[in-house]
């Protein structure tokens, strides 16, 4: 006979299950095995992402066009994944755009809770369709300088950049986007 979870009484659980506490583990009351892996990579950017990052350092956003489907794609790519052909010219696009979607997040990127009640600003990542790129072509970034509750889909935004000397050829060379 099997017993469903609903049928298990508190008493039955206490008699049959012993859960480990954090103290049991940290205090070495139970035998544990630990290992910190050392995993380091240096990914080759390739010509598309390589140029994209180099242009970010210049304070510019660059895309690449496929003449067959006429899409102007950002981040740029060397081939069009839909037409299955090499892409054509490089196209500078604007550092402004439109919010496609966004979120007001009460947890950080590690899913740790932010102290919102204590005054910490929620994280407000967004997908921003870039002006000059094709519809639906956007980049993932952050929205700031606005009350999170006032962010709207369709809102026009523009990039706020790091100072030129501080840029390193990374997506974080843009600090965030703000309403324009």
């Amino acid at each position: 006979m099997t017993i469903s979870n609903k049928q298990m009484t508190k008493e039955m659980i206490e008699k049959t299950v012993t859960s480990l506490s954090r103290e049991d583990v940290i205090g070495n009351k139970v035998i544990t095995s630990k290992w910190e892996p050392k995993l380091q990579y240096a990914w080759d950017n390739g010509p598309a992402i390589g140029r994209y990052l180099a242009e970010l350092k210049n304070g510019k956003l660059i895309a690449k066009k496929c003449r067959k489907c006429n899409r102007i794609m950002i981040p740029p790519r060397m081939f069009c994944e839909l037409c299955w052909r090499p892409t054509d010219e490089w196209v500078y696009v604007k550092d402004s755009g439109t919010v496609n979607t966004f979120v007001i997040s009460h947890v950080d990127w590690k899913a740790g809770r932010l102290d919102i009640k204590g005054g910490v600003r929620p994280f407000t990542p967004a997908v921003i369709e870039i002006d000059g790129a094709s519809e639906g072509m956007g980049i993932l970034h952050m929205i700031d300088e606005i009350d999170p509750q006032k962010i709207k889909i369709g809102m026009k935004v523009k990039a706020i950049w790091k100072k030129p000397a501080e840029r390193e050829g990374a997506i974080t060379d843009i600090l965030y986007f703000k309403p324009r």
Binding site: W43, D44, G46, P47, A48, I49, M78, F79, W84
Partner: peptide
């Protein structure tokens, strides 16, 4: 292969294979 990312590396092999087979 510092000149290409895994994307372009695979794209080259795939383009050759599809041409070789005569498919898209």
């Amino acid at each position: 292969t510092p000149d290409v990312s895994y994307r372009e590396l695979t794209y080259e092999a795939a383009t050759k294979a599809y041409l070789n087979a005569g498919i898209e």
